[in-house]
Nucleic acid binder design. Sequence first.
DNA 1: GATATAATTTAAGCACACTTAAATTTATAA
DNA 2: TTATAAATTTAAGTGTGCTTAAATTATATC
Lengths: 223, 223
Amino acid sequence: MKNISQEDYISIIYKHRDGGGVIKSNTIAERMNISNAAVTDMVRKLSRDGLINYTRYKGVSLTGSGETKAINLIRRHRILESFLYKIVKMPWEKVHEEVENLEHGASDDLVNRLEVMLEYPEYDPHGDPIPDKKGKMPKARSAVRLDLLPTEKSAIVVRVNDYDHEFLRYVASVGITMSSEVKVKSQLNFDKSIVLTVDGNDINMSQKMASNIFVQEKKNRIK
Amino acid sequence: MKNISQEDYISIIYKHRDGGGVIKSNTIAERMNISNAAVTDMVRKLSRDGLINYTRYKGVSLTGSGETKAINLIRRHRILESFLYKIVKMPWEKVHEEVENLEHGASDDLVNRLEVMLEYPEYDPHGDPIPDKKGKMPKARSAVRLDLLPTEKSAIVVRVNDYDHEFLRYVASVGITMSSEVKVKSQLNFDKSIVLTVDGNDINMSQKMASNIFVQEKKNRIK
DNA sequence: GATATAATTTAAGCACACTTAAATTTATAA
DNA sequence: TTATAAATTTAAGTGTGCTTAAATTATATC
Ligand SMILES: [Mn+2]
Ligand SMILES: [Mn+2]
Ligand SMILES: [Mn+2]
Ligand SMILES: [Mn+2]
């Protein structure tokens, strides 16, 4: 009747699988904050239910029906986030956490109605693409990891990983959000951390944090 | 972490307890469509957790903290219903079923925001009172069960029990909704069913069905 | 007040989703 | 190639929330 846990696993697998579509047991456990033994257990059930391919000691990958299910949950998630942000006006850094609990209970019918109200949005409040009713994703916008942005180049924030609530809250607290203009002033060799300018303020940020923020370089007009 | 089942039990107890605040095990089982044994099991857990008073073979009743929890869930439920109906424009007969799955995942913060958007509604789409942030219920409107309405008196529908999805769908399909004007033309002694007029159409309705619809008599102006 | 019927609990068992600790397999490095 | 370390699975156990069947307690009827 309710497969909340299965949905969470499937979507974690979708989001964190590597280029070959494979994810390690370990990664799932880390991302879900549970033991490896628990993952082994669930992975067998998901395999039994035809949602993933699994052979012992190898990683797992989604089957066709598993991927369909994953994309459907991601669609629900991102449309709900967009709705809470755009229409309910919930703060940017709060919508992900709220939707994490809401997504499993929303019907396709509701999600479709919200999509219409939002006039078929292509990206969610974190810049992630929203799959359409058929599961088709809009093309991901080209972007550069903030920790790889050359110094002294102005750039616009176009996507932020919504993997961690604490990270989102911190990012928002230093004034970074979608479409913020940022410029890397320097990169410290000591710990790879960077100093960047946002809204005229200088802030220091760890390499790990910066690697979860994606920007588009601003083409500076030559005058 | 997630006490979805407990929430459902508590709210069923709140809604179906008798005048003395007591509900029988049987009633819970019926309303939830589960076995009596399952109820006994859960009732012990709820008692252990201090949410209900329970002694074997007697019915159960809510404790203070149980009632607080119940009212909080009912508030979430009714505000979400109002929101889906008034703002998302979801059909009247669908909102209850949708919210049944949504209510457990909505935070108080979200519900409070929706309440503001709705400008502090007092009644939900089925005419049920919405508790405020402190748990205070607006006064229930006086109303008469439709099966007890005298014949030939015009009346306005002010509340419909939302206990059963099928019932709601049927009620909507015959054209009855909030503020509908209805008039009982006759009551059949054979099976206590009634014939009533809605929107100029005559329909027959069982006594059981009519007893779940509540109306306010229209004061007919004497001219 | 004994007895039949109805309501409720107990007993035994199952699937799910987790845990810790021990065993096993795979990867890496001497 | 073999020892060692890391990843993964297995084993054993727990709490939740359900099931059916049997036993018990309460209630209604004669
Ligand atoms: Mn998110
Ligand atoms: Mn997002
Ligand atoms: Mn309802
Ligand atoms: Mn309602």
